[in-house]
Design a protein around this nucleic acid. Structure first.
Lengths: 217, 217
DNA sequence: AGATACATACCAACGTGCGGTATTAAAAAA
DNA sequence: TTTTTTAATACCGCACGTTGGTATGTATCT
């Protein structure tokens, strides 16, 4: 096969295929051969030209998964018209409405059988999202008086872990009822921290989303 | 090598070695060969006589890790002299004092690089511990009036996930200060659910433990 | 005799490295 | 400006070492 003028497209194609296969069959049960076959004409050398290892592909895949979401987080974090509490509220509202989730929903992945991918997401949540996006917001909230806590780092981590991982209906394959219960408990937890950021509008949208996920399986 | 009169000892030995290696190098970077070498004289046939796959060894390892803890949970769950809230308190007190943790602490494992093992523990927590041990206690608490919630399943899951996974200093390699902060946030969370089960005695013991872990690394 | 507890030899599949080739864009020469 | 050279890039495809797993053999137990 001839050389491609736009290598980024090849790279992107590899990621497309890898993402789909990782979701469908799991990272560990997807071989480089599998990716090559679905790629149509490309060779092993091509893959190892663009990525230095299979694990490197996984990193790129998860990066692309979270990139869009992180952009939104950065935007809200850097707004100047909201106080800390309002920013938190905005984040949960947006993270539910944004299509990042929809993309993933259409694949209907099984994190249930994908420890590596889940772990990757966990890591990203704890090492990137919590300290770089949620923490600054909470710190601002402490300064402007809208949030009270003596342990902002840990609060940031707990909130985003619960919200992003535990509440994600894909991770533990929750039923609609289960998701609803989780959400109510999550809401109560936030209230316990003095964070009353979940309103009925958000709640409704969440129930819609979980329905979509249920139907697509 | 001659045949062993007590095959359970061989089985146990395999698990000992596997456990140590899984902790030190991670499940995926531990090969069957590695285990054989550290086993001293035993062969591949021996391993595959006692376990049907590498994954099967992992399951056995995690089972052994949680067995002791689960026994304690069952004991407290079935006591008749405590109400629900008191049982919850007893559980957190015991889970910190019990030596299961100490065993693990001496190895100073890196869950940080061990997606499979962490996932295994996560699964056990959600599918075994939460529904079979914590949930019955919460349900009892609802009946006897010591606990109030409309979503016992989800509350059980969140509490035990936070307590067993998030608060475990090994999972995300926390510093002493980090552990302290997490614990305080955890305490506040529980209070938010009307569960005032963390007293100063528990808090002190926890700080001791995390110190031990820090020194052993 | 038959089940158990291993040892040995082997296999297919895997991730990865590498020598080679075709294609391109940029620099140099005309 | 056009042509030529150069060096980097995009890709091929096979070979290599390792991996998890199996089939078969053998000694030892009940």
């Amino acid at each position: 096969m001839a050389r491609n003028k736009h290598p980024e497209e090849t790279r992107s194609l590899i990621l497309d295929v890898a993402f789909r296969l990782f979701m469908e069959k799991g990272y560990e049960h997807t071989s480089i051969q599998d990716i090559i076959q679905q790629l149509g004409g490309l060779s092993k050398g091509a893959i190892y030209h663009h990525f230095k290892s299979k694990e490197d592909i996984l990193v790129a895949v998860t990066d692309r998964m979270t990139a869009e979401s992180n952009q939104m987080l950065a935007y809200i974090r850097d707004r100047t018209d909201l106080n800390g509490l309002e920013k938190l509220k905005a984040i949960f509202k947006e993270s539910i409405n944004r299509p990042v989730q929809d993309d993933i929903f259409t694949v209907a992945p099984d994190f249930h059988k994908n420890p590596k991918l889940l772990f990757s997401l966990l890591q990203d949540t704890v090492e990137e999202v919590a300290p770089n996006y949620i923490l600054p917001i909470i710190k601002q909230g402490i300064l402007d008086g809208s949030i009270q806590t003596k342990y902002p780092e840990e609060l940031a981590e707990l909130i985003i872990l619960a919200g992003n991982i535990w509440m994600n209906p894909m991770v533990f394959d929750d039923t609609k009822e289960r998701s609803y219960g989780k959400f109510m408990i999550f809401r109560q937890m936030l209230c316990g921290f003095g964070l009353d950021i979940i309103d009925d509008e958000i709640l409704e949208r969440l129930l819609e989303l979980t329905s979509v996920y249920q139907e697509n399986k």
